[in-house]
Amino acid sequence: MKRKNDKAYKCKKCGRVTYPERVVCLKCGSREFTVLPFTNECTLLTFSQIFQLPWGINDRYLTIGVCQFDNGIKAMGRITIPEVKNGMRMKANWKLFRQIAGEDVWGWVFEPIK
């Protein structure tokens, strides 16, 4: 399955950043975008240590958060350790982190910068 989570976009007309992909800019209605590369680092905006996870995940808990990349892209991802705080600087790693029904799933794994 093609997952549309590996690219972020910038609207050619108004510059609004879009992630994940959508076909029309929410701000100006333009349908033209350029690819915006992710930066290596980002800042943690919010997170939660989540228990009672869904079917298919047998971990006792996961820490999941939302980070803002240095060029403005915002994305959800897993966080490597639970001891984090809002505002923390993170390294953004694009990783193969699980399988769903036998299919490899790639996504963001954020790691605090020491």
Binding site: M76, R98, I100
Partner: peptide, 10 residues
């Protein structure tokens, strides 16, 4: 599905 669900978010 691609930007939230995959991470195991509830």
């Amino acid at each position: 599905p691609d930007a939230e669900y995959i991470y195991g978010i509830t």
